[in-house]
Amino acid sequence: MKKTAWLFAIMILCFILQSSIIHFFRINGVAVNLVLVVLIVVSLQTNELVGASCGILVGILWDVFYTSGFGINTLILMLIGFVSGKLSERVYKADFLTNLYFTVLGTVFYHFIFFIIHYFLKLEASSILYMGKSIIIEMVLNIMILYPVYRVKGYFLRKYKVKY
């Protein structure tokens, strides 16, 4: 229980960093998605219950502050947390490459669902073409930030001897 509370605190901290500091380090107008990366790493290390609830927590914050329709980010992040948590039993989660594959797929999944939902909310279909380059840049940035996140996770696991 205490471990999960810490994870929630970390997720909230990541969200605050994401919405305040990170956008000053935009490359080509694209910001790295720290929340998504941390969510995937956390979900892979834990289980689907923790993953989904972390996703819901950050998603709600995100939607309350920035989205005009409530629920888009909550839905996507919940699903990402849930699926990575679910699959974590069947993959070798201590491997960096596993985390990398999940990050790449997670980024694509996030933007795909985001686009689908907004398409039904009257967004122009051609906007995915404009966004294609940004999505690829974001994916590269996500992979770049995944490595430090992954190392920090390993450090915490070793230092506090946490078992999941």
């Binding site: 689907e48 989904a52 819901i56 709600i60 914050l61 309350v64 989205t67 005009s68 329709g69 409530f70 629920g71 888009i72 909550t74 839905l75 919940m78 699903l79 849930f82 939902i117 909310l121």
Partner: peptide, 28 residues
Amino acid sequence: VIILALTLLVTIGVTTSGHSTFFEGTGF
């Protein structure tokens, strides 16, 4: 998760038209 996902889909549809005043009362 499935029920939540469906509920959220409905919420997205309902709240997108107009201002989302739904959460203003909360202290978030």
